[in-house]
């Protein structure tokens, strides 16, 4: 069997397993899993930039927040329905990541991390500044009646679960496809040796910019989906910890792997949940990962057992 068909089977099996999960898991855990899938989309978006292109951003909460508030404000203040709301979220994230990418990519390494951190901080403060509309830290709630797409009530637990699953599957297959295209391979080449990739004739700046925009827009999709499915937008989702979370998820699950982001999100979500929301756990995991397993769970599995792992 070729590696490509193995990869397709793996991804499909994962989606099937998630479908089964809804029917076998207790309600509480199924609810958690819906949330995890939405955050895994965020992590997959982050992974495209960090894991595949090798660019460590500390400001992805800006893109998550752009999607969240793009959809949230369009529905809350603009009164549009869910469909155009999602579009508004995606466009907001796309524009914001385009601008941030254009500016931040003039730097590299540590400067890139700090620039993205600063932009995200400015974004978070902007949400607070316009508290009249965003209601700042307290946030706002989308009325249940508006949270429907094509007549399907997305506030219903089952509909919500499968909506999250469909989005998750789309992004998973998209990224699985993207990283095997010449474009995706070039991103990996940039991660491994930027100067060599440039001297093979690749337009590095353009590739990186597209990577930032794709990564930012997928993160924005996650933010918009969260707002729509769980019905609220709060400034906290645009703050620094939400820039750290996807880094944590991806590092734990395995950077540069297609299913690592989901695995990392799953583990981290339950770890933080189990510790009663204490970020100490996140801290310990981060230090431990940096020290002992810089390639994460799936990176280790790939290295030791399954070399074809995507």
């Amino acid at each position: 069997m070729s590696d490509i068909s193995r990869i397709h089977i793996l991804h499909a099996a994962m989606v099937v397993a998630l479908v089964i999960c809804w029917f076998v898991l207790p309600v509480y855990h199924a609810g958690n899993l819906a949330r995890i899938m939405v955050f895994a989309i965020y992590a997959m978006g982050y992974n495209l930039l960090f894991g595949y292109t090798g660019l460590l951003s500390l400001g992805h909460a800006l893109f998550f927040g752009a999607g969240m508030y793009g959809l949230g404000l369009a529905m809350h203040l603009g009164g549009v329905s869910a469909g155009p709301g999602i579009l508004a979220g995606l466009i907001t994230a796309l524009v914001v990541s385009g601008v941030v990418g254009f500016l931040a990519l003039r730097t590299s390494g540590v400067a890139f991390m700090i620039v993205t951190l600063m932009f995200a901080q400015a974004g978070y403060l902007t949400v607070l500044l316009f508290g009249t509309y965003t209601r700042g830290d307290e946030g706002f709630v989308l009325p249940q009646a508006t949270r429907a797409l094509m007549g399907i009530d997305l506030s219903d637990a089952q509909n919500r679960y499968f909506a999250a699953l469909i989005l998750f599957a789309i992004v998973l297959f998209f990224i699985g496809w993207l990283v095997r295209t010449p474009f995706g391979r070039c991103l990996v080449a940039i991660r491994e040796n930027e100067e060599r990739a440039r001297m093979l004739g690749y337009d590095i700046t353009r590739h990186k910019l597209i990577a930032v925009i794709l990564s930012g827009t997928i993160s924005g999709l996650s933010g918009a989906a969260y707002c729509l499915l769980f019905g609220s937008a709060q400034a906290a989702f645009a703050a620094v910890p939400y820039s750290i979370f996807p880094l944590l998820y991806v590092l734990l699950g395995g950077m540069g792997t297609t299913i690592g982001p989901f695995v990392g999100t799953l583990f981290m979500f339950y770890l933080i949940d189990w510790s009663g929301g204490n970020m100490m756990v996140a801290g310990v995991v981060l230090v431990a990962l940096a020290l002992f397993a810089p390639t994460g769970i799936l990176g280790e599995i790939r290295r030791r057992f399954i070399p074809w792992l995507p």
Binding site: A189, N193, R196, M199
Partner: peptide, 10 residues
């Protein structure tokens, strides 16, 4: 390149 530059991990 004068100093060998390949994609070592690929």
């Amino acid at each position: 390149f004068q100093i060998t530059s390949v994609f070592g991990k690929l």
